[in-house]
Nucleic acid binder design. Structure first.
Lengths: 241, 241
DNA sequence: GTCTTCGCTTGATGCATGTCAATCGCTCTT
DNA sequence: AAGAGCGATTGACATGCATCAAGCGAAGAC
């Protein structure tokens, strides 16, 4: 691994406070690997070999059952996946495949468990990451059970607008069919729902969604801090102080 | 707290390997409290004061949004709730209320975080519990996205049959309306689905479900080890060896 | 330039599920 | 014993969403 990459991994929340010796131990056994688009990285039902950390690119987590498939999450740089399976040494509940060319850092599961026992800062970071992932799934479950597919879409647009910085335009970085699966609907219904949102302040230009009337869209979407992952500026500032 | 209760708490996986001094520290600040049926223990949106451990009874975790309410989980003795919120010191995503008279052990959130940093065995137990809870939510999300409500019911009956020991009869310990909410359907649809399952090997006698033809029910339910929480006898034996 | 491909869209239809309303049957009162 | 209350059931209906099938349009092949 090149020094610069090592440094950028070091700055991730998961490793930031780990002792230099333990970090070196983790990195010595870790593999940094690049995968092309559309490759299946792990298969549900298998046992975990490595903890995976996304360094660059995008990974889709999905599951199949009885001829159907659904997207459970899309992982972006800085985040881990299958941490829970590694911690418990139990089978994966999800499969993972790359949505783009992707760079992954892979740390052997046994090494993760070993350093967890030796380094309190690492243990703390692991449990914080796991708790964060837990909260994401709970939000997803509430989103699924308490909203219609059109409302999920409307909230996704608002959230993505905030995340991309420019709050009035959202550019789609993934396939519409992947977005549909992520939002728990068919591609056909995504199309129809986009048409529906035209009456609530959104206009569509191919892969670009323009928020003409944020207030109207928000009225339709009914965003909720306990479902949508909205940054809470006050609390973030309080924490870093 | 009486010595006998203390001993039964000590034997929970969460505390089993914690040092005696740290366990004493946890118990000195903990409250053991009894709540009657139907009491709201925590409210979504609040900040965590205590980690809650169910010692006796049943607790329902639920969430509300836009005039609707859904059950997210039902917690039984030995398990914790709102662990993720305590770990991250962030607002609850779920509310909790008692379904029966319930005894709860409540440990101040700050004490949990403090012992987590000092006791590696406790840290390990916390992360295992959190990972287990994580996996439960992932299963719930898959259950919700990949199955019809009737299939969810059929699998619940099979699972509950196995859990209750007698695999051919299941006795309902909660309201049918609570079961309906837990399985993500209305009480009306639970009724109809129970009627439907009569054609697939199940007969209903009030709060007692009798599995006449387990094979037929299993064909309809299509159980899946990666959705349903099925014990895996081989692996459990391998682990304890 | 034309053809093919593939993702997206649009329309028609059916199943899954929620909603509203009426009724049943049990338990608890009084 | 009659009535109130409440959970469970049943029926009628509306809506959400998936499915199937056809059409559209832009990017790439030749």
């Amino acid at each position: 691994m090149r020094p610069q990459q090592r440094q950028s991994v070091r700055s991730l929340p998961l490793f930031h406070r780990v002792s230099e010796a333990h970090f070196a131990e983790l990195m010595d056994t870790a593999l940094l690997q690049r995968f092309p688009e559309g490759v299946t990285i792990i298969q549900e039902g298998d046992l975990p070999d490595f903890l995976h950390i996304v360094v660059g690119g995008m990974v889709e987590l999905f599951a199949r059952h009885d001829g159907h498939e659904t997207t459970l999450d899309i992982i972006e740089p800085g985040s881990t996946f299958i941490l829970a399976a590694v911690v418990r040494d139990e089978t994966y509940l999800k499969s993972a495949r790359t949505l783009t060319s992707t760079q992954l850092l892979m740390i052997p599961a046994g090494v993760v468990r070993s350093i967890f026992g030796k380094d309190a800062a690492f243990a703390r970071a692991i449990v914080e990451e796991l708790a964060e992932r837990y909260r994401c799934v709970v939000r997803a479950l509430k989103n699924e059970k308490l909203r219609t597919s059109a409302q999920r879409l409307a909230n996704w647009v608002l959230q993505e607008g905030a995340r991309q910085g420019n709050r009035h335009e959202v550019t789609l970085k993934i396939d519409k069919r992947t977005l549909a699966s992520r939002l728990g609907m068919t591609p056909e219904n995504l199309s129809r729902n986009l048409g529906l949102l035209a009456r609530h302040g959104l206009s569509i230009q191919g892969p670009r969604f323009i928020i003409d009337d944020a207030a109207a869209l928000r009225i339709y979407a009914r965003p909720n801090a306990l479902i949508d992952d909205i940054a809470e500026p006050e609390r973030i500032m309080a924490r870093s102080a």
